[in-house]
Design a protein around this nucleic acid. Structure first.
Length: 1045
RNA sequence: GCGGAUAUGGCGUAAUUGGUAGCCGCGCUAGACUUAGGAUCUAGUGGUGAAAGCCGUGGGGGUUCGAGUCCCCCUAUCCGCACCA
């Protein structure tokens, strides 16, 4: 063996560990750079090749920055709280900490093998009390803060109390759950409990009765981003809406900042867009409608105040609190039934019925504040309680949902907007609503003739003048539900006095997670922590039994890395002033609405407190694409399908003189073939299956007057093998009108699995693809022996081969690109690849695969190419006998050109995160140097430094062989010298009318006239000139010459 | 339905940002060597054609001396959001 990667990689990994090569500290003499990977949750399955993709990229970036003279912070740790470990604990009784520890160790082992440059001295785990002390601490700060809308900043709750004492709510503009108004005297007259309740209306971490996503299977509530399509993201269990007392974070207070600060970060546009959607800002108006005959105001939010003349009815969400107050006695039953119906459906059912129109009339009427018109008030679940005010003014002419509703319940439709330059038409003739946002107002009193945009402004002025509405900005973002009814999470530093929650003193932190004997909820449905003994404060007050959600610990972890061992504070002023925020954040795009929103909120809050010097946590972010698996398939013969196919071949096209149809269905019964003319039913199946249906089917056939034939597949197969025609004869007899027994007992066939090779004719008709472990397949050829040993049920498998080009029998597998997963047997484990090719090869290959941000399939064979490259690289430094052999002669100009071209490409490539092109540039460089037989130190020494971010092990080995004592990590990146790459001639492509015809080597100093003369004089040019004079000659120095004829 | 992204050989991809389309690697073909191997090395490899050449970056149009790249229209795939008033 030429290069022994196994030995070399182990040696240097040990050296790095022993000498703490990757340990970093604050160094004011160097600029800082912070490279971070998204916090991994250590799952039981370990890493597959998709996971390290981002880690390798960030590792390369970190190493490169270090070579460029930066002091690079590059830490790693674990998001250690999580549902899987807890689910496992519920099933097996194993403490989640034990499972988590085991998984972490496995992750660490796998990561170590790939040679990452993490400073492991800074590792954090969210489940470590030394860490979650600060998660709890932050929660207390949130609890003790409110958001001042005037100064757009979080403020201590004490300031609010002081204000209440002097002025009551007068002059307060704060983020709140609901509007409140009281005087200083009233405040002072309140009991402590009442005051605490008032404060809950303002705290940034508050407790409230909220409509939550309850997941009965997991026994907990979930945040909005943890629910997709009405199912839990973890586990895929159904979720229902339920009202419960919960902790929430008032993230909505930060909606505007979360939105506008997106402009200040360097993230890709699609993630920003997802975040913008999630915040969901819309500007419009709040309009008050009186309810006829009642002293009730209905507040409505609309973005189309211009259409107020076109509103013909109103709709409330079924959960709206005023529904029962406005409903008239004669409509009460109907309304209550509708509410009950809406409530009993899960989120998922409700979503599935999106386009189904339903609703109920309350009997009440609202009054249009502008026109005074009477508007019937309905309830319908197409109006959501969670958005706006849960009530709408319906404008059926210009909103598709309102239109559908109006049509369904025969409500009037009035057109108020026209397409510019067209006349209004009768809405009764319309097929759909006219939703256009640019148009001209009609039928709208003082708005007539205005554009939509102008009309909105004008209407808001009018509403404000009349005191019946105001301009208002609305956000889709909801406050984040922060409690989980689970064990494995941070306990809340909260105790209850007189039923009201109070924050513990900071000196009591960390409040450690107690041990309990079982991880399930209690019998009366309380969270698992209710099982803990003595879960009370020193004074005897009960402690909160909910725990915090997964995103609690991961929201501020990047700050803790800056000062991970500080037990006095979250992180020191000095550390934060130096490291600031993350310069480059790499991870998957799946965190777009969860982690990335929450940590931005967390960071902004800490910024308001003056703790974090930066308002945004992650300055630049790159989202790596998924690595998909390439699954292999073997094709298992489905005898039933095969027999059906064979028999159908005989029946079709009236071969026996009568027409047969396939797949005949009658109610729940299904038969393979049916002859309508003769009333013949035929079913082909296994003996066992036929025996089950023979009696009921006979009965059915009798009733209908059909003739029935149940054909055991054994008969079809035996006919085929023995050359008999028993089945055929029976069918012919039936057609001829003879009596044939419906079913005759036969010996079943022994079931031997049979597999057909991919290209066998008609394979797809009679076989089913089954996933094959990719380790049993090489170049799509199945190792049939290993395959039969793979699983017990395949022991006796037989194969129908095809011939390869040399005439040998081979079994060819099919393939498909799918998600990498255990169940598809297509998981590529990095450990195996490190074992076989070395970590450097794996690192290079993962980068070589393609642009980091794109999803791409994993090609098992492609890695050979980078493996060859690594050894070719090694050979530059060694002679034929694998002896280290580097010359001290000065490098030639072409050698220097090769080197400096690479320096430029690597710098540009790394900065623009196109690592794939850099690997390709390395290959080109090594190919050129090999051709030049270059083994000069002047070239190879910088080259060693340059490859070290990608292939740190071989670089370290060669660096030491070159005579250095310290690590290559501490070397300096070579400096690009443009003069080394310039040539004094350029090989010009000469084109005629834009088509490239030939090349011509010309000095770069030549003037345009000289070039033109030289080109036209060239013998090859004559052929293309066709004797004409050129109209024009385009000359772009060092690019092209184009002759226009 | 709305929004975003993508489309280049058999495959993963590259193209100095408007200047020789297909770099690099896989695969494939041929050859060399050999202790016959899923090893290594050398050469070739977009299509078509004997060749000159012609065609070719999802499709159609346009701008330009010149378009994978810019503009307009269409198609397909992927991702996100979705009764958001």
């Amino acid at each position: 063996m030429d290069y022994n990667f196994n030995e070399v990689e182990k040696k240097w990994q040990q050296y790095w560990r022993d000498n703490k090569i990757y340990k970093v500290d604050i160094d004011h003499d160097k600029p800082k750079f912070y490279v971070l990977d998204m916090f991994p949750y250590p799952s039981g399955a370990g890493l597959h090749v998709g996971h390290p993709l981002g880690y390798i990229a960030s590792d390369i970036y970190a190493r490169y920055k270090r070579l460029k003279g930066f002091n690079v912070l590059h830490p790693m740790g674990y998001d250690a709280y999580g549902l899987p470990a807890e689910q496992y604990a519920i099933q097996t009784g194993t403490h989640p900490a034990v499972t988590t520890e085991k998984n972490i160790n496995r992750y660490r082992e796998q990561m170590d093998k790939i040679g990452f440059c993490y400073d492991w001295d800074r590792e954090v785990r969210t489940s470590d009390p030394k860490y979650y002390k600060w998660t709890q601490w932050t929660f207390i700060q949130l609890f003790n803060s409110f958001y001042c809308n005037k100064c757009q900043k979080a403020q201590p709750i004490g300031k609010l109390i002081a204000h209440f004492e002097e002025h009551g709510t007068d002059g307060i503009n704060a983020a709140e759950s609901k509007p409140m108004s009281f005087t200083a005297a009233e405040w002072k007259a309140m009991s402590e409990k009442e005051q605490q309740e008032v404060l809950m209306n303002y705290r940034l971490a508050y407790q409230a009765e909220a409509l939550v996503n309850w997941c009965p299977e997991l026994g907990t509530v979930l945040a909005n981003d943890e629910v997709v399509d009405g199912l839990s993201v973890r586990g895929g269990f159904p979720v229902v809406r339920k009202s419960m007392k919960q902790w929430l974070l008032r993230i909505t207070a930060y909606a505007e900042r979360l939105l506008s600060d997106l402009d200040n970060v360097d993230w890709n546009e699609s993630i920003k867009e997802v975040q913008r959607n999630w915040v969901g800002k819309s500007m419009g108006a709040s309009v008050i409608f009186k309810v006829e005959g009642k002293d009730i105001d209905l507040e409505v939010f609309t973005t189309r105040a211009d259409t107020l003349f076109g509103t013909t009815f109103m709709v409330l969400a079924p959960e709206h609190e005023l529904v029962s107050a406005i409903t008239t006695p004669e409509h009460r039953t109907e309304v209550e039934e509708y509410i009950a119906h809406a409530k009993n459906r899960s989120e998922r059912e409700r979503m599935a019925e999106v386009r189904k129109v339903s609703g109920a009339f309350t009997g009440a009427y609202g009054i249009n504040p502008i026109t005074g018109a009477k508007l019937p008030i309905w309830i319908a679940d197409y109006v959501l309680m969670g958005y706006g005010t849960g009530a709408i003014m319906a404008v059926p002419a210009h909103d598709s949902r309102d239109f559908a509703f109006a049509r369904h319940f025969s409500l009037p439709i009035i057109q108020v907007v026209t397409k510019p330059g067209t006349e209004p038409t009768d809405p009764a003739t319309w097929e759909e609503s006219f939703d256009a946002k640019d148009g001209v107002m009609v039928n709208s009193g003082f708005l007539n003739g205005l554009t939509v945009k102008k009309a909105i402004e004008r209407m808001i002025q009018e509403l404000e003048k009349l005191g019946v509405g105001t301009g208002k900005t609305n956000y889709r973002l909801r406050d984040a539900i922060f409690s989980r009814q689970r064990y494995w999470g941070e306990p809340f530093p909260i105790y209850y006095k007189d039923g009201m929650p109070y924050a513990m003193d900071e000196s009591k932190l960390p409040l450690e997670l107690p041990s309990i004997d079982e991880y399930k909820p209690t019998e009366n449905g309380e969270p698992p922590l209710a099982r803990a003994k003595n879960w009370v404060t020193e004074e005897g007050y009960p402690i909160e039994t909910n725990t915090m959600p997964g995103f609690a610990g991961s929201s501020g972890y990047y700050l803790r890395y800056q000062d991970p061992h500080n037990d006095k504070e979250y992180f020191s002023r000095e550390a934060n002033d130096y490291w600031q925020n993350v310069d480059l954040y790499i991870g998957g795009a799946e965190h777009a609405t969860g982690h990335l929103i929450y940590s931005r909120f967390w960071c902004k809050f800490l910024f308001d407190l003056g703790l974090s010097c930066k308002e945004e946590p992650f300055q630049r972010m790159i989202n790596q694409g998924m690595i998909q698996g390439r699954s292999s398939f073997a094709y298992r013969v489905n005898i039933e399908k095969l027999c059906e196919h064979a028999v159908w071949y005989q029946l079709k096209d009236k071969k026996y003189g009568v027409e047969f149809v396939r797949d005949f269905k009658d109610g729940r019964r299904r038969f393979d073939f049916f002859c309508p003319e003769k009333g013949i039913l035929i079913e082909i199946n296994r003996v066992g299956n036929l025996e089950k249906v023979v009696e009921p089917w006979k009965e059915y056939a009798n009733e209908k007057g059909y003739k029935l034939l149940l054909v055991p597949i054994a008969d079809v197969v035996r006919d085929y093998v023995k050359g008999t025609n028993k089945v055929e004869q029976k069918i012919k007899d039936l057609i001829a009108g003879k009596d044939v027994p419906a079913y005759e007992e036969v010996q079943p066939l022994p079931s031997t699995p049979l597999f057909v090779s991919k290209n066998v004719t008609d394979r797809e008709v009679f076989s089913d693809p089954i996933h094959v472990d990719i380790n049993l397949v090489h170049n799509d050829i199945l190792d049939t022996i290993a395959f039969t040993e793979w699983r017990d049920d395949l022991k006796n498998a037989l194969f129908l081969f095809e011939k390869d080009k040399d005439g040998n029998n081979v079994y060819i597998c099919g393939s498909e690109v799918e998600k990498m997963s255990k169940s598809k047997y297509n998981v590529q484990n990095p450990d195996d690849l490190v074992e076989k090719y070395g970590a450097d090869t794996l690192r290079l290959y993962e980068m070589f695969l393609g642009p980091l941000e794109q999803s791409k399939p994993w090609d098992v064979q492609g890695i050979e190419g980078t493996y060859r490259f690594v050894r070719k690289f090694w050979r530059l430094f060694h002679n034929e006998n694998n002896e280290f052999c580097v010359s001290n002669e000065p490098a030639t100009a072409p050698e220097m050109k090769t080197l400096h071209t690479l320096i430029k490409k690597e710098e540009d490539g790394i900065e623009s995160i196109s690592f794939n092109t850099v690997v390709s540039a390395f290959m080109i460089c090594v190919n050129e140097l090999s051709d030049l037989k270059c083994n000069k130190r002047e070239i190879l020494e910088p080259l060693t430094v340059m490859i070290s971010p990608y292939a740190p092990h071989i670089a370290e080995e060669l660096w030491h062989l070159l005579g250095h004592d310290s690590s290559v990590v501490n070397a300096s990146f070579p400096i690009y010298d443009e003069s080394k790459t310039v040539e004094n001639s350029f090989n010009y492509p000469i084109s005629f009318n834009g088509k490239m015809r030939f090349n011509m080597e010309l000095p770069v100093t030549m003037s345009a006239e000289e070039v033109q003369a030289a080109v036209l004089a060239a013998p090859e040019a004559q052929k293309w000139m066709e004797g004409k004079t050129p109209k024009k000659v385009i000359f772009v120095p060092k690019k092209i010459v184009n002759v226009v004829i």
